[in-house]
Design a protein around this nucleic acid. Structure first.
Length: 269
DNA sequence: CTGGCAACCTGGTGGC
DNA sequence: TGCCACCAGGTTGCCA
């Protein structure tokens, strides 16, 4: 479920329930995630939450002596629940709060992560990440310069976290469609004008999805249990064989790396 | 350094 | 109903 808009939606959903409250302790039912849940998380006790932040697709809970770093992987989600709410099969981690609620992490595929870092700068997972897509650092000048010698397909390149973070498989296809750029184009082949358009459409697509509360695919729910509504606005993702909303030609699908790509042959060049 | 791709894990779907 | 192949929102790590 989680691309950047889903993570930001989760962040906004949980923040008011955590900041100013105290984590009494954690309950780790299954610590075998992408990496083992950090020892410091098992050992949490009586720590106030100072802030809830986000970097790329990582959620960052600031405590007085360090940071809880959470990644939702492919199938993870976070909800705020009453502390006596029964745990289900894939509910792997709870943070039990002083306000009678729990932050519950559910992740069937266990590709997610719960890590601890004393300082964010010392975190392996956050090192080497590119700029945030919604920041001024992600600009046409930047994209053009970084792409000058890249022969990689632009679809794969915009999904590379070293270039820019937060553009996942759904929004890569959606952004390229909105920009009218064919996903097979090499990164270095984009003109400056195309870099400008692509940067602009990536920001617009992500912002719009955040406004809509993320994309509902399979079972993504916001932290209050409501669905995200961006799926209704998807132009190409998951629409193979259906008519392009702009020209009526059938949307086609292909692969870049191991990931499905969706595009319109007529509208994207 | 780059690019390609297998791997991590579970569940849902569609074909036979 | 059963079995099996294949698909899925992300990221790392190993290989050539």
């Amino acid at each position: 479920m989680p691309e950047l808009p889903e993570v930001e939606t989760s962040r906004r959903g949980i923040e008011p329930h955590l900041v100013g409250e105290t984590i009494l302790h954690a309950v780790v039912r299954n610590g075998r995630l992408r990496w083992p849940v950090s020892d410091e998380i098992h050992a949490l006790s009586d720590k106030p939450v100072l802030s809830v932040q986000r970097r790329a697709k990582y959620l960052l809970l600031e405590l007085p002596d360090g940071w809880i770093i959470i990644h939702l992987g492919m199938s993870g989600s976070l909800r705020i629940l009453p502390e006596d709410y029964p745990a289900q099969k894939h509910d792997h981690v709870d943070l039990v709060m002083s306000n009678g609620k729990v932050l519950r992490y559910t992740d069937p595929r266990r590709f997610g992560a719960w890590l601890w870092a004393k300082e964010l700068e010392g975190s392996n997972v956050l090192a080497h990440l590119g700029p945030e897509p919604l920041s001024d650092a992600f600009s046409a000048d930047y994209l053009r310069e970084k792409s000058a010698k890249k022969k990689m397909a632009i679809k794969q390149w915009i999904m590379d976290n070293k270039l820019v973070v937060g553009v996942g498989n759904i929004y890569a296809s959606e952004s390229l469609f909105a920009a009218g750029i064919h996903p097979d184009r090499t990164a270095q082949s984009l003109s400056y004008a195309e870099c400008e358009i692509l940067v602009k459409t990536i920001k617009a697509v992500l912002l719009r999805s955040i406004e809509q509360g993320g994309t509902t695919l399979k079972d993504f729910l916001q932290s209050d249990g409501k669905p995200g509504y961006f799926a209704q606005e998807l132009q190409v993702y998951g629409r193979a064989g259906e008519p392009c909303k702009a020209c009526g030609a059938p949307i086609v699908t292909s692969k870049h790396g191991q990931r499905s790509t969706f595009y319109c042959r007529h509208c994207q060049h």
